[in-house]
Simulated scan of single mutants.
Amino acid sequence: MKNQFLIVSTIVIASFALVSMTVKDFEIQDPWEVPAKYEKMQNPHVGDADADQVGRMLYKEHCASCHGTKGEGDGKKADTVDTEVPDFTDGTLSEQSDGSLYYKTFIGRDDMPGFQEKISDEKQQWLIVNYIRTLGS
């Protein structure tokens, strides 16, 4: 009886240890504080026909590795960051202004790098915002 208790206890402890090593523990980030300047920015390229082709190409090149090809937060690098990668398809994009998405994409913070230097063309920046919007619809 004593041996059975010892064996069961060892199995339970080993199971908890194994589970704790395999579960990703994401840091909880504070909500984004988007400055009013950006929150109120108007997208000068809303409805631009290039959004689908150019925006998609730029998204694939710079964003899909973390956010996934369909924007579900399941890119191949998503598990390498300390914070949870957002799912663009969950409906929360519609609650955000274009300026807010612009700020988050091109200024960034923490694990989300700013892409202002890598994508310096302002039209291309807005086309990515336009394309990201299509993932949420």
Rank of each mutant, 00 (worst) to 15 (best):
M1Q: 10
N3F: 11
N3C: 05
Q4W: 12
L6G: 02
I7S: 06
I7H: 00
I7W: 09
V8W: 10
S9L: 15
T10H: 01
T10Y: 07
T10C: 14
V12Q: 02
V12P: 01
I13G: 05
A14I: 12
A14M: 12
A14C: 12
S15W: 11
S15K: 00
F16D: 09
F16C: 11
A17G: 15
A17I: 15
L18I: 13
L18N: 09
L18H: 04
V19S: 04
S20V: 02
S20C: 02
S20N: 11
S20M: 09
M21D: 02
V23N: 03
K24L: 01
K24N: 10
F26Y: 15
E27C: 09
D30C: 04
P31M: 05
W32E: 11
W32Y: 12
V34E: 08
P35D: 11
A36Q: 13
A36T: 13
Y38F: 15
E39N: 14
E39M: 13
K40V: 13
K40Y: 10
K40S: 14
Q42S: 12
N43S: 10
V46W: 05
G47E: 06
G47R: 03
G47M: 05
D48H: 08
D48E: 09
A49M: 10
D52H: 12
Q53M: 13
G55H: 04
G55A: 09
G55L: 07
G55I: 01
R56A: 15
R56E: 12
R56Y: 06
R56L: 08
R56M: 13
M57Q: 15
L58K: 04
L58A: 06
Y59T: 07
E61Q: 15
E61N: 12
H62D: 01
H62W: 13
S65F: 04
H67K: 05
T69I: 13
T69L: 14
K70L: 11
G71V: 00
G71N: 02
G73K: 05
G73F: 07
D74Q: 13
D74H: 02
D74R: 12
K76S: 12
K76I: 15
K77F: 12
A78W: 00
A78Q: 01
A78N: 07
D79W: 04
T80Y: 03
T80V: 03
D82P: 01
T83K: 10
E84I: 11
V85A: 03
P86H: 02
D87L: 08
D87V: 08
F88Y: 15
F88E: 01
D90L: 07
T92R: 14
T92F: 13
E95A: 14
S97I: 08
G99S: 03
Y102A: 00
Y103H: 13
Y103E: 02
T105G: 10
F106P: 01
F106A: 06
G108C: 09
R109E: 04
R109F: 06
D110T: 10
D110W: 03
D111C: 03
D111L: 01
G114E: 04
F115I: 06
Q116L: 11
Q116W: 05
E117L: 11
D121P: 00
E122W: 05
E122M: 07
Q124Y: 00
Q125R: 14
W126K: 00
L127V: 01
I128C: 02
V129A: 08
N130K: 08
R133F: 08
T134W: 01
T134E: 06
T134Q: 08
L135P: 02
S137N: 14
S137W: 02
